[in-house]
Write a protein that binds this DNA or RNA. Structure first.
Lengths: 255, 255
DNA sequence: CAACGCGGGCGTACGACGTACGCCGCGCGC
DNA sequence: GCGCGCGGCGTACGTCGTACGCCCGCGTTG
């Protein structure tokens, strides 16, 4: 009948849940199921076991409740994930930071990185279009504050934030992969590179790919040194901030 | 028995397929199934209908063959995707570019963006750890060439590349979401923002979130102007390159 | 105080998916 | 001319999301 693909969430339904916060009915006010309890349980499952382990059956189980009971409060899994995302945005700190825009942006970058580390499933869930929930809006407003009044246009402010947060996400993803790999294989990243070294050397010879071979080795050792992802994050962040400071300086002197 | 999670691909199996390229047996040399034909069909399906539509049954169908026949050549879906990824890397151009490092990096960024636009499923498939296939290695070697001999350390070269490619991926993802949304809803991004404007205004008032409201409006209009994602890509790319040039300049003068 | 209706909770079932297992039948080497 | 190996595949199982409709207990009403 309906030719709609249900692969994706219905934003309107997600928004309704996010903004309406319909109060619990008088009936089972205290101890029944609720959107909040469901979302909290789902976040706990995803934090502990990853997004693949987050099934509707598992959520029901975690709440000591039948699978289908969850559907009384949430229209489907996609919308549940939407609400989970906005909920964790609500956990983020929004301190007033002393210092200039660079200090503030750096702080924002680190806070977002910490969020991704605490909730690694966010890195995969966020792929789809973000739903404009209340906490995402609050987060956006707060973060824009870091780059307000330094001479950028509105569009540039948005672009700066997008750039910084994109870098954070890329770095977080790389770091998360290292963690996953260690969990799956039982080896550290360094051990993994070492065990694959002979295999690598059979085809990635200095003759065939001189640059890749040399740099790959160096980067691999860096990873072995147990702070590879952090280095990539720090290096990239400073580069991005340097790049932004060029525009800020232009605006300050030029007009 | 085996407590292995099969959510992820076995890298060794993927690598074996990627590097061994076992020649077809004498028997059905010409017209039978083959890894190449399977991968090509799978890429076509994913290009046309997205990663969700890529099922083993669908691949078999596209080849006029039973579902399980695919498993004769490919150990599983995860490994198939690994091979698909390396294959599309093989399609990328690797021209010798006239100009300095900045010109070369910019070209690399645009080529990678084009790749993501041609194969949007890459944006979701790549999430897992990349498999070191022959084409990925060749790509890595080529791209490192853009930043060789400008005074960076090996680790910095790797970090620069990671930074630029990360930005490309972030931008590509944002652009891809716009395309998806237009396909799903049948509206352009501008129309979508406009239709949701009244709804947005009910809670995102200038009183509650002054900055987010103003900047969001500006950014929304930018999106309506049909070149939002391109702007974000260009702006971010120039910022990133500016940031890199600061280090390059340091290295050139400092020693 | 009794009857009722409604809504929260859930059991069952269906159609996807990935893929293990074992059976065919063709065509090449002897 | 014969047998066997291998490419190809039909069936079946366990998972998932979720549509559908039943039940039961509570709050409301007469």
């Amino acid at each position: 009948m309906a030719s709609e693909r249900k692969a994706t969430a219905d934003p309107a339904r997600s928004l309704a849940i996010l903004w309406r916060t319909r109060e619990p009915t008088s009936r089972s006010a205290g101890q029944g199921l609720s959107v909040e309890r469901i979302v909290r349980a789902a976040i706990d499952v995803a934090d502990a076991e990853g997004l693949d382990a987050l099934t509707m059956r598992r959520v029901g189980e975690a709440l000591g409740v039948g699978t289908m009971s969850v559907y009384t409060y949430v229209p489907g899994k996609a919308e549940l994930v939407d609400v989970m995302i906005d909920t964790v945005y609500g956990e983020m700190p929004r301190p007033v930071v002393e210092g200039d825009w660079r200090v503030r942006l750096e702080r924002i970058a680190r806070d977002n990185l910490a969020l991704y580390q605490r909730h690694r499933w966010m890195l995969r869930a966020e792929t789809t279009r973000p739903v404009l929930g209340p906490h995402l809006v609050a987060k956006y407003d707060y973060e824009l504050g870091a780059v307000a009044d330094i001479g950028l246009t509105d569009v540039e402010m948005d672009a700066v934030l997008t750039l910084v947060l994109g870098h954070v996400k890329s770095s977080a993803r790389a770091a998360s992969e290292v963690v996953d790999l260690e969990r799956e294989t039982g080896m550290t990243d360094g051990q993994w590179w070492q065990s694959h070294a002979p295999w690598l050397e059979t085809f990635l010879t200095p003759d065939s790919y001189p640059t890749a071979s040399r740099v790959g080795t160096a980067a691999g050792q860096q990873h072995g040194a147990a702070y590879g992802p952090e280095y990539a994050f720090e290096f990239g962040l400073q580069r991005v901030l340097d790049g932004i400071s060029v525009v800020v300086a232009e605006r300050a002197t030029g007009g």
